[in-house]
Amino acid sequence: MVSRREARLALRQQLRKGGLESPDFESACLLEHVLGASCRLMTRQQLEEPLTGEQAAALHALTRRRLAGEPLQYLLGEWEFYGLPFRVGPGVLIPRQDTETLVECALRAAEGMSAPKILDLCAGSGCIGIALAHCLPHGRVTAVEQSADALRYLQENAALNRTPLHIVKGDVLDPALAESIRGVDVIVSNPPYLTEADLAALQKEVQFEPRAALDGGQDGLLFYRELPALWQESLNPGGRLLFEIGMGQEAAVSSFLTHAGYENIESFPDLAGISRVVSGMRPAGARR
């Protein structure tokens, strides 16, 4: 029988040989997932306890799937974003730390509002909208998502985090949908923004994520071209539209916002110093 300590050492070696970048971290995550307990909190004696046959089989299956490229987050079934847990799996985009920049920017945009109305377009797992609803308990967040698979996770995550969220199934490029939603103070969106070239060169792990959540058209800018004008009437005068963007897209997205009539265009970097968010304000003098 293999002990928990020995199992982790062997797993770490397998992951390292498989070319994974963080074998220490991932081996701990997978073993803890199988054990249902944190190895860091175990005593030396507990670490020497043997794996059960069921645990060994489960760990072997997870290791095989990870070495085949399946994302760690999918194997664990849950991932943290903005300090909150989110269920993830096939059919939904994995929340990424870079996207926390969009949450921070949206919170600043909502400062001073007693009951802000926020709209999350291309909501996916709901990580952005749920994080905002959690931080703004007196606000009202509406999340729009088209994918049936992603909607299931969105609903589960809203329940998991006990955040009241108004969920709408729909296509964010549908003019009728845009016309049906009005009186919004802040719109946030992390739309698909990979180019055709990006999609052709995806890392193995990312290939497991839904293509529809990644594909931004030939140049990656499809949604940025369409959404600013399409959803401008949904914003109250003085309200802001905030986009997460990919590397090198700042100038193009800023120009789309300017062309659509937005003012006070701003961009914000992520923790790595890369421009990650571009936002624009609907003119305060605009008619509602």
Rank of each mutant, 00 (worst) to 15 (best):
E104C: 10
A106R: 00
A109T: 05
A110V: 08
A110Q: 01
E111G: 07
G112P: 02
M113K: 15
M113F: 15
M113I: 15
S114W: 14
K117P: 02
I118E: 03
I118H: 03
I118F: 06
L119R: 01
C122Y: 02
A123C: 05
A123E: 03
G124V: 00
S125Q: 00
C127F: 02
I128F: 02
A131G: 12
L132M: 09
L132C: 13
A133K: 01
H134Q: 11
L136A: 11
P137R: 14
P137K: 12
H138D: 15
G139M: 06
R140V: 14
V141M: 09
V141L: 13
V141Y: 00
V141E: 09
A143S: 13
A143D: 11
A143C: 09
A143P: 06
V144P: 01
S147E: 02
S147D: 04
A148K: 06
D149A: 14
D149R: 05
L151Q: 02
R152A: 04
Y153V: 00
L154F: 11
N157C: 07
A158F: 12
L160D: 00
L165C: 03
L165M: 07
H166V: 15
K169W: 06
G170F: 07
G170S: 11
D171P: 05
V172H: 11
V172M: 09
V172W: 12
L173G: 01
P175K: 01
P175D: 01
A176Q: 08
A176T: 09
A176L: 13
L177A: 04
L177K: 03
E179N: 11
S180E: 04
S180D: 07
D185S: 03
V186M: 10
V186C: 04
S189R: 08
P191V: 05
P191W: 12
